[in-house]
């Protein structure tokens, strides 16, 4: 499948074109946003299959709201991250508790040498397991800030809280991650 060929167009412009019946805009948005949505859902849930379901559902909601989308009120990605967070919260509540993963599925990888690759993979798995152990809101704030690299004001908008609350959540989340990961410093190359 070719890469997103409409890189010069904003998400909002593509969504407007989608609502007008442009199928190419639908494909561009699918290629551009599905990885973000699925990646975020995976980090909040820790399970790939569930993350895929959430990603599909979030994108479906985006398609449905397209005709009523009001440009300038919110960014499409902000709206999507909020939808993903809500869907993940519902999923976690249905589970009854946050499941700690014994083993995180290994994504395919062709980067670096074997030793470097092994350490990188171990770090990703350890981080995901540590994230899974965080309270839900802390996990979401840390993922948005330090993995998705979104600014605090936008995170505040996504989570419906103040910027100060975002800072507090990320600080507490990172402290908890440090404690969890420092116990594995030898295996993971954790350097304080």
């Amino acid at each position: 499948m070719p890469l997103d060929a409409m890189t010069d167009q904003s998400d909002e412009a593509l969504l407007r074109r989608f609502a007008q019946g442009d199928r190419a805009a639908a494909r561009a948005l699918t290629l551009r946003l599905t990885p973000k949505v699925m990646g975020h859902a995976y980090r909040l849930l820790g399970q790939r299959e569930e993350a895929e379901d959430i990603a599909q559902e979030a994108m479906l909601r985006l398609w449905r709201i397209a005709p009523e989308w009001r440009e300038g009120e919110a960014r499409v990605t902000t709206w999507l991250y909020r939808v993903v967070a809500n869907l993940c919260t519902d999923r976690l509540r249905r589970r009854g508790r946050i499941t700690l993963l014994d083993k995180v599925p290994d994504p395919p990888d062709d980067r670096g040498g074997p030793a470097q690759d092994m350490q990188s993979r171990a770090r990703v798995d350890a981080l995901q397991n540590a994230l899974n152990a965080l309270p839900e809101r802390q996990r979401q704030a840390v993922v948005l800030r330090h993995i998705e690299e979104i600014g605090n004001p936008e995170i505040a908008e996504i989570m419906g809280i103040s910027v100060e609350a975002v800072e507090s959540l990320t600080a507490r989340g990172k402290r908890a991650l440090s404690v969890a990961l420092s116990s594995k410093r030898d295996a993971l190359g954790y350097v304080e």
């Binding site: 990885p35 980090r43 770090r123 990703v124 993995i147 991650l177 350097v191 304080e192």
Partner: peptide, 17 residues
């Protein structure tokens, strides 16, 4: 700095649809 290596690894190995 320590967590940065973990976050960097997570970004590099983002799950792909």
């Amino acid at each position: 700095p320590a967590l940065g290596a973990f976050f960097a690894a997570a970004k590099a190995r983002a799950p792909q649809p």
